[in-house]
Design a protein around this nucleic acid. Structure first.
Lengths: 346, 346
DNA sequence: CCGTGTCAATACTACGTATGACGTCGCGAC
DNA sequence: GTCGCGACGTCATACGTAGTATTGACACGG
């Protein structure tokens, strides 16, 4: 019986399949598969291999990812869930992570948690449906963790509110110490706190560490020296104005550089000069920090390292390498001192 | 013969399949499939449907996306290729596009063209391998178009350098007229041009339109009034300093708000006051524009509209609705006049 | 009591790939 | 001459789903 009878018409469809290549090259589909997956050693002669490779190239053949997945059970696609892609910082993370993922043969699917309140459910569906192999969640909170528990083996948390759960974490405690010591060293005794509320978990944790350090430095803290805000520039500026009006602090720490920018605007409205009347410290060290004038003193996150480490850990987990799962990878932060902080006003 | 004999052990694997649900519910796999895909009308009794739905929920069943794709031939995943995700503007586009895609049941895969010189090849592979159904390319250039031609039916261009190829385009010509007229109206006779070089195609086009309008306004243009730069803040600032030094123009148009920011820094270095000594106009109207002081006069792009339109067109194309393919959708831009432009110095 | 029509549910196959289990062929050794 | 064996290939199957063809049951008109 003629070989390939069943598949004789398989090639009539628009897409090029391994059968089509096999037919064109005069070999069997198995051989094509062996060649394409690089498992030809010892089973396919060099001549045949070259023939198949050439034919595949000529026909523009690319293995069907879905069929491959169906057969092997693993699709090489990751997802990154970040709070807000519009934030340049997360854009940075995303790019770096995508790069690392790509180096490992993975593609990256985007999830913006701020634009979809039900992203957790969606994520669970995608993982269960094998659309993605796993997901890295940046700055996730407790609620998310609860919803994602059914697929927890496929999730890796970065800077979660609970260190224990993190795969990769930031050494926020040390960063806060640097910030407070820097400001205290400049003579500041009253330090305000301006926070983003997008990720309650991470926010709360940062604030807690901040309070710890304020206390350690022997300083006081008054609840009126603290405010939260969304990321929109207008609401943030408004909130900053409110904060500056109500609190008589001489320096303020901002959860995020964008909030620092809003603080600059508020200070301008109120006629307060940075850093003479008010010192400002930011967080993230995005480009904006050096666009502001005076340039912003801020906590820098080694984005590259965070992204790389998280993706590599995720992939290791997915492939079942439990070897190096000895607690979270803790990344140290850096305080970049620039022009926005100065001696406390007399 | 006992039904389901072949699949008796199919459920032993960790993942929940339609067979598992069928077995648990005491029906056939076909029935489960019919219920899950919503095609149960008139074929499955209400009681059975409810039973299956309940069972599926209980077991946490989610159809395997790959198997579905393999069967139906289409995976609902799109890709967005943007020049640089770290640019807040593209972050915005990305978020909006993701939202629209999601509303249509599509997921979004990220491609950052700046971090991968071979993204075109990769994209072709992904499309051929059916990993993604199609791709929207923002600000792509001629070279990309050439490389992507083999899969052109799956590509939609936004602001390509050649209007004819675009699925969605920006009315840059009109925008440039607004810019030039605005500046000319303020008495500026010599206008500089500061351009990003990340997407040569889009850049060249913008510049051409700019020149057209300068001419139309009866103004001169000197090659020394023009410079290009990458996006990094430091190189951009340096280039801006060079530009301001070499050109004796009184106003400058910047291809991108970030370059405008660099121009602000350069002006500060050179002791030139904006807008008294120099008027600056940007492009994109990202948040940065209002963080700068004075606030930046800039061309605003209706991101929402661009993103929505492009995704919808892409999906329509993929589904074969050729009905509304009457040329590109041209989106009008807006000039937001703020504090960075003022009367030309005497 | 037999067509005939309708509703409900099932059997079975194809989608494209990877891969373990089988040939087959040539050649050297016994 | 045949046995063993390595080198090279192919066969057949399963992955999980969608959907078409089919069966079964039941009611109703003739």
């Amino acid at each position: 019986m003629a070989p390939g009878k069943r598949r004789a018409n398989a090639a009539k469809g628009s897409s090029v399949t391994s059968f089509a290549v096999a037919e064109a090259a005069g070999v069997s589909q198995s051989t094509v598969s062996l060649v394409m997956s690089g498992k030809a050693a010892g089973r396919v002669s060099k001549a045949t291999r070259l023939l198949v490779e050439e034919t595949a190239r000529r026909l523009g053949y690319q293995p069907n990812a879905s069929a491959q997945m169906l057969r092997t059970g693993s699709l090489k696609t990751l997802s990154l869930a970040v709070p807000n892609v519009e934030q340049p910082f997360f854009g940075q993370v995303l790019v770096r992570a995508e790069l690392t993922a790509r180096e490992n043969g993975y593609s990256v699917l985007l999830i913006d948690t701020s634009s979809d309140t039900r992203w957790c459910e969606r994520l669970v569906r995608m993982i269960r449906g094998r659309l993605i192999a796993g997901c890295i969640v940046y700055a996730g909170d407790v609620a998310a963790e609860r919803l994602l528990r059914p697929v927890r083996d496929h999730i890796l948390y970065v800077e979660a509110d609970d260190v224990a759960r993190s795969g990769v974490d930031l050494n926020v405690a040390a960063a806060m110490r640097m910030v407070v010591e820097h400001l205290a060293g400049l003579g500041h005794r009253r330090i305000g706190y301006f926070a983003a509320d997008y990720a309650k978990g991470a926010f709360r944790r940062r604030f807690r560490y901040f309070l710890d350090e304020v206390e350690r430095a022997g300083l006081a803290f008054d609840p009126r020296w603290q405010a939260r805000s969304t990321f929109g520039l207008d609401p943030a500026t408004e909130n900053a104005v409110g904060l500056l009006r109500s609190g008589d602090f001489t320096a303020v720490f901002c959860d995020d550089d964008l909030l620092a920018a809003a603080t600059y605007r508020a200070a301008r409205q109120l006629g307060r000069i940075i850093p003479d009347d008010l010192s400002v410290v930011g967080f993230n060290d995005v480009e904006l920090a050096r666009i502001l004038w005076p340039e912003l003193t801020t906590v820098a996150i080694p984005t590259e390292k965070v992204a790389r480490s998280s993706v590599e850990r995720m992939i290791a987990t997915l492939q079942g390498d439990e070897t190096d799962d000895d607690g979270p990878d803790i990344v140290d932060l850096l305080l970049r001192v620039r022009g926005s902080t100065g001696p406390a006003p007399a």
